[in-house]
Amino acid sequence: MTIHDWPVPERPRERLLSHGPGVLSDAELLAIFLGSGTRGRDAVQTARDLLVQHGPLRRLLDLRAPQLARLPGLGPARSCALAAAMELAQRHLAAQLVHGDCVGQSPAVAARFLQHRLRGRPNEVFAALFMDNQHRLLAYEELFQGTVNAASIYPREVVRRALALNAAAVIVSHNHPSGDAEPSAADHQATAELQALLAHLDVRLLDHLVIGEGAPVSFAERGWLGPASALPPRR
C-alpha cells in the first residue's frame, strides 16, 4: 500500500496544504522530501525507519549531505534537497538579522541562527556576528576551529575583524560537541579579555553564546558580561 492509497485527508501533502506544516509529525515532514519509500515500505514508513536508526530529527539533519546520501531511502538527490533546505533555513534566519533591529529586540533570533550554524559540528568552532550601531548584521564569520573538545580563541583577531568591518557591536559564539553547553574556565577568561579589548574601541560585546544539545548558555543572561551588554532576555 502506497501513500496514494491512503484516504486523501490523511496524506501528508494534503494535510500540509489544508492545515499547515505544524500539524505533521517529523516522519511525515521527512516523507514529503523522500517522495517515495524503499522496497515494500511507503515514504512515511521509510522516514520512520530513518528516524529510529539515525534520529532524532535534529541529529539526522545535522549529518552532512555525503553522510545522508549513504542512508537507505535517501541517495544523492534527496540528501542534497535536505541539505539545501537546511541552508535555506539558516539564510532565512540570517535575513531576519539583516533587516531591522532583530538582535536588539529579540536575541532569540541570533541564538537560533547560531544554533543552526554550530550545533552538530564535530569539532569546536568559534564564530562571531558583527553588527552596526543599530545591531543589524554586517557579517557572520567563523574565525577559529579546533578539536572535539577545544578551540583556541584569539581575542585580538576578533577585534581586528571588528575594526575592518567598522562594527559597533559583536555577539560571539562557540559550540561544545560534547553537548554540555556549560562554559569552561578558559571560555570565561577569553570572554573577559575580548570584552575588555573591544571596550577600548567603543565596540560592545553583546553576548557570548555557548551552543550544546539544549538551550544555549548566554553570558549576558547569566550576568557574566556586566551592565555593558544590557541585552533583553531571549523569549
Rank of each mutant, 00 (worst) to 15 (best):
A220W: 04
F144Y: 06
T191I: 09
G214I: 05
E141K: 09
R136N: 10
P155V: 04
L118V: 04
E182P: 00
H116R: 02
V172R: 02
G214C: 07
L205D: 03
L129G: 07
S152C: 08
L198C: 09
H135C: 13
G146K: 01
F113V: 05
W224N: 03
L138D: 08
L114C: 00
E221D: 14
I171F: 03
L143V: 14
N123D: 04
A139V: 06
F113E: 04
Q105W: 07
F219W: 01
H200Q: 15
L118I: 05
R204D: 03
F113K: 04
E141Y: 04
A192V: 08
A192G: 13
M131Y: 08
V170I: 10
H208F: 13
G100C: 11
V125Y: 00
V172G: 03
N149C: 10
H116F: 01
H200P: 01
H116T: 01
L129S: 08
S152I: 12
A169K: 03
A199R: 15
H174I: 03
L205I: 08
N149H: 12
H174M: 07
L163K: 12
Q134G: 10
L138E: 09
R117S: 10
L165S: 05
N166E: 14
V125I: 07
A186P: 02
L197I: 07
F113M: 13
A169S: 12
V203P: 04
L138G: 08
P183K: 05
H99K: 10
F219R: 01
G214Q: 06
F219K: 02
R156H: 13
R222Y: 02
L137Y: 07
I211C: 02
R204V: 12
A215K: 04
E182V: 11
N175K: 00
Q96H: 14
L138H: 10
R117D: 08
A127C: 10
H176Q: 13
V148M: 01
F144W: 06
A151V: 11
V210R: 01
H135A: 14
A128P: 11
A185Y: 05
D207P: 05
R222W: 02
P155Q: 09
G223V: 03
A110H: 10
R222N: 11
R222A: 03
A151L: 02
A151Y: 00
G223Q: 03
I211V: 10
D101T: 11
D180N: 13
A192K: 11
D202P: 01
L138I: 15
V125F: 00
R204A: 09
G212K: 04
A186N: 08
M131H: 08
P216I: 08
F219E: 03
Q134Y: 11
A185V: 12
S173L: 05
L129Q: 08
T147C: 01
V210G: 00
A190I: 04
H174K: 05
P216Y: 06
G212N: 05
C102T: 13
A199M: 10
R160M: 13
R121Y: 00
L97V: 09
C102Q: 15
A186G: 07
A128C: 14
A139C: 12
Q145D: 04
L197N: 04
C102G: 15
Q189R: 15
Q96C: 13
G146D: 01
L206N: 07
Q105L: 13
H200Y: 12
A169T: 06
A111T: 05
Q105C: 11
N133S: 14
H99T: 12
A167Q: 05
R161H: 10
V158P: 03
G214L: 07
L194A: 09
D132G: 06
D207R: 03
I153C: 04
N166D: 15
H208C: 15
